[in-house]
């Protein structure tokens, strides 16, 4: 083998060694590095997402007391059970306030409606509690009474709803001159009207409680989570009313 041949062979061998070395050793390693970089990106993204989730959860925790108070108070508008005594009390109080005589009340059984899809029915449907009550009073008094009843839970234009009491939807209203019963209440019979109102009160869906087991200090832990949250706040505090 001449010197030139040896040179060529050496170069070929060197090239082969380099190519094999690069493709079989260095390149896979670089590929692993690239994979690790993707892994880091993914982990970073997951971390950002988790941090955002944590931030939301912390905000939710910060707003918990307000939310609890709001939920409890919303129970005035739509309680967890029928709460007919308190409903009657509110209606009676309103009628007395406006000098309207409550003559009769009749309630029918609550009806439940199936939840549907869409924003309008995003929440589970409330149960309806229809009832009818009759009143006697003057036109102005009945007007004031109706206004008062609708303002138990009312909407104000800037985007706020104010809850004072039970949410009622009036389905029908009949007014007619009053019969003889008004005379017994001492009203001037001629100006007294008899009003029949068919209204609907609402109750939370069956199986749903007002606060869903939450206490003023902490919500009920979700199934599958520990009884004590990461912030160290016990999920339930015994002894609270």
């Amino acid at each position: 083998m001449s010197g030139r041949d040896r040179l060529v062979v050496a170069i070929v061998v060197l090239v082969i060694v380099l190519v094999v070395g690069w493709t079989q050793v260095v390149s896979p390693e670089r590929s692993k590095v690239s994979t690790a970089e993707h892994k880091i990106e993914s982990a970073r993204s997951a971390l950002t997402s988790a941090q955002s989730e944590l931030q939301q959860a912390q905000q939710a925790k910060a707003a918990y007391r307000t939310a609890y108070a709001a939920i409890v108070a919303l129970g005035k508008a739509v309680p967890a059970s029928q709460e007919i005594p308190s409903l009657l009390y509110e209606v009676e109080a309103a009628s007395e306030h406006h000098h309207v005589d409550l003559l009769s009340v009749s309630a029918t059984s609550a009806t439940s409606t199936a939840p549907t899809t869409g924003a309008a029915a995003s929440a589970q449907s409330f149960q309806q509690l229809p009832f009818t009550f009759t009143f006697e009073g003057t036109y102005a008094d009945l007007y004031n009474f109706l206004k008062h009843v609708q303002e138990f839970a009312a909407f104000t234009p800037p985007g706020l709803a104010v809850v004072h009491g039970r949410l009622l939807t009036i389905d029908s209203l009949n007014l007619a001159p009053a019969g003889g019963s008004a005379a017994s209440s001492g009203k001037t019979k001629g100006h007294t009207l008899s009003g029949t109102i068919t209204a609907t009160a609402y109750v939370l869906p069956a199986g749903e409680t007002l606060t869903e087991g939450a206490t003023p200090t902490a919500p009920r832990p979700l199934p599958g989570t520990s009884s004590s949250n990461a912030a160290g706040v016990p999920a339930t505090i015994k002894g609270l009313p």
Partner: peptide
């Protein structure tokens, strides 16, 4: 962080 957020999930749910 997820575990921490999970511990506060009940608040979000409420």
């Amino acid at each position: 962080v997820r575990a921490k957020a999970s511990g506060l999930a009940a608040y979000k749910s409420f």
